[in-house]
Design a protein around this nucleic acid. Structure first.
Lengths: 149, 149
DNA sequence: CAAAATTAAATTGCGCACAATTAAATATGC
DNA sequence: GCATATTTAATTGTGCGCAATTTAATTTTG
């Protein structure tokens, strides 16, 4: 095998991940559009829906850690979601540097419309539960390695 | 398992792919910056480097098919690369609708500086050749399924 | 306690991705 | 041959993702 061989697009893991992520997005978008969400906004909602109420809040920093996004991405994104009345933003009175985010009633309700999305998307993959699990384990291991290098 | 369980971020394949793609980008960017390339521009170069000369050309359409990108992404991207003197763009005289892209001498030379990137990035994954191959096969299969659904 | 360092968010600027539209060239059908 | 349809790029507008910088609040340190 020549060194040249390695530079082929088809050989690259990164290109597969890149293509799959785009493809994943294209499958999610029409579904999420019905809820008025983009994919990134959906990820934010997934985090907030876990609380499942309109009282507990999460800081932008905590959200950023969970989603691996910085304030440069989250600040404008959360502002758009606030404008859509999905969540509210307010400074933490204990520490005025921190901005807290909390679901509105509307944002909380939206969960009902999203409840079937994971199953729907799973069916698009055409995979079995076992195959999915195996792939998830591989990707998790890769994520851990690449985060620490 | 409750339906609710499915909505957890940690369970989602899409989130793993999304996170890995971002992580992959973060590893590529400092390396590619030395060549003055973004990740997407690198992908374009990978396609063009295969020709390995400054005479054969590829249409924007063909490039778009290989990379799964449309003209809305490629047109401005290729213009930026033309400005950097990596490639040249010109209308096909046989069919004036088509725009052809071709490496400049500079673009062709840049390949030498990129020759070790795949090996370097492979080492970041911490995987064996076999593990990489297995993962690639899984992802390819998923790509095929999701393209046709 | 005051100066310096750290932390959290916001802002700015750039480059994708992509939906939707537009413009121009070519192909097709009658 | 000409109207119609299709094809190809480019353009416009929106929303990320992120590097770099800025602003403000808090913590640390001498």
């Amino acid at each position: 095998m020549t060194i040249d061989e390695n530079l082929k697009l088809e050989k690259q893991l990164c290109f597969r991940l890149y293509s799959l992520t785009k493809l994943m997005n294209r499958h999610y978008n029409p579904v999420l559009k019905k809820l008025g969400l983009t994919y990134s906004q959906y990820l934010v909602m997934l985090v907030l829906w876990k609380k499942n109420n309109t009282t507990s809040s999460l800081s932008v920093k905590q959200l950023g850690e969970k989603l691996d996004l910085d304030s440069g991405t989250l600040s404008p994104l959360l502002k758009r979601m606030e404008k859509q009345l999905l969540l509210s933003r307010f400074r933490n009175s204990e520490d005025e540097r921190s901005v807290e985010v909390k679901l509105t009633g509307l944002g909380c309700q939206l969960k009902e419309q999203a409840i079937n999305i994971p199953a729907q998307m799973f069916s698009v993959t055409g995979m079995s539960i076992d195959e999915l699990h195996t792939l998830n384990v591989s990707l998790d291991s890769l994520l851990v390695t690449m985060k620490t290098k």
